[in-house]
Amino acid sequence: MLAPVVAGVDGSAEGLAAAEWAAHEAVRRGRSLRLLHARNRHPRRGEAEAAQAAGRRLARRVLRAAEERVLAVCPGVRVYDEQVEGPATAALVRAVGGAEPLVLGSRGHSRVTGLLMGSVALEVVAKAAGPVVLVRAGTAGEEAAGAGRRDVLLGVDVTEPCDEVIEFAFEAARLRHARVRALHAWRAPDPLIPGPGEVGPVSDPERAEEWLRFLSAVLRVWRDKYPDVEVLETVVAGKPASALVKAASGADLLVVGHRLTDRPRVPRTGPVTHTVIQRAGCPVAVVPHY
């Protein structure tokens, strides 16, 4: 059985946007949609059954509202729902293992709501072993308005390219009949100090051409694997996070990587991923890798 697309819902506008985006993604992938509501608490011993029942009724209303939203925009999607007890972070991280992918709502700019109160969204991204997509309110509706014709923006570090991240972006573009815009941002070295392999002064245009050759080499195998996906290779001078945020304003989806560590004593996202989650103007897919 194919793993479903999973959307975490909490009754907020962002949660509804996540459910709507996930519904479109489920249809594209030919999968079912699982709506998940995590009640961010554990019932205390001796707690009145009435209080527990009230919590379950509230969760039921949240799930019903999300299901109605989903069926209004994607009548053909196969949808089912589930409510679980326990801390939201743990429940959502567990859900990643059976999701293709997990979709959550986010306000960005460090402000999150409901299930994503405080640092939960960042904790889920930091701990998740599978892709997590963060969606803001107001962006999911663009799916039905032809947003799939826009680019899937892929952030690439040509010095450490990651197959999982690149493949996710190419597959997303194939499903959307969209173009992959692969972007690598480079920083110019001190003009008085030659860069690696340089024996004399090198101009910025020459460095840009060299980085573009590196990027083309990295993506060559993926062009061959996805011959029907158009690819635009772009290199820019500057900070990666700033370049991606700027380019994301015209994208349908931004795909970035998150490096997992073997000893995640304090799981956290890297600075680039952290910034684009907060500031990008389109949904952001964070793909973990080692």
Rank of each mutant, 00 (worst) to 15 (best):
G141N: 01
D157E: 03
G155V: 08
F170T: 01
A172W: 01
G97D: 15
R107E: 06
G146F: 00
E167F: 11
S119F: 06
A172E: 15
V120H: 11
G97E: 14
A144I: 00
R149G: 14
L183Q: 03
K127W: 10
A144K: 00
A66H: 10
V93T: 13
I193E: 04
G138L: 01
E123Y: 05
P131Y: 03
T89L: 05
A90L: 14
A147D: 00
R149F: 05
E160M: 08
V152K: 09
A172P: 00
H109M: 10
H184Y: 11
V77H: 00
A178D: 00
E198R: 05
L154D: 10
P194T: 06
L192I: 02
S110Q: 13
D151Y: 07
V103Y: 02
A182K: 01
D81C: 10
R69D: 09
A121S: 13
T139V: 11
P75E: 08
A145Y: 02
P201S: 06
V165N: 09
V132K: 04
A128Y: 05
G195F: 04
D81I: 06
L134M: 14
D190S: 09
G200R: 12
K127C: 15
L71M: 10
I166K: 01
R179L: 04
T89Y: 03
R176D: 14
R64K: 13
E198A: 07
M117W: 15
R187L: 12
R174Q: 12
P75G: 15
P87D: 06
A169K: 08
H109N: 12
G98Q: 12
V62E: 10
V125M: 03
A147Y: 00
V112Q: 14
C74G: 01
K127R: 15
V62I: 15
L192S: 11
V125F: 08
A91N: 09
E143H: 00
A137S: 14
D81E: 13
F168E: 07
T139E: 02
P161E: 10
D157T: 04
R149C: 05
E67G: 08
L104E: 11
V158Y: 13
A91E: 12
V112D: 15
D157Y: 07
A182T: 01
Q83V: 05
H184G: 02
T139S: 13
E82I: 05
R181T: 15
V62Q: 09
F170Y: 13
C162R: 15
R181Q: 14
Y80I: 00
P87A: 05
R107H: 12
R179W: 04
V165K: 02
C74A: 15
E85N: 07
V156M: 06
V112L: 11
E198C: 08
E67W: 07
L175G: 08
V133C: 09
D190Q: 02
G76N: 03
C162M: 11
L63M: 08
K127Y: 12
P75C: 13
V158W: 09
R107S: 11
P75L: 13
V199F: 10
L63D: 06
E160S: 14
E164M: 05
V135M: 01
E67R: 14
V103S: 06
R174A: 10
S106H: 06
Y80L: 07
A99V: 04
E85Q: 04
A188I: 10
D151W: 03
L154W: 07
V156F: 03
E82A: 11
V120D: 06
R69N: 03
G114L: 12
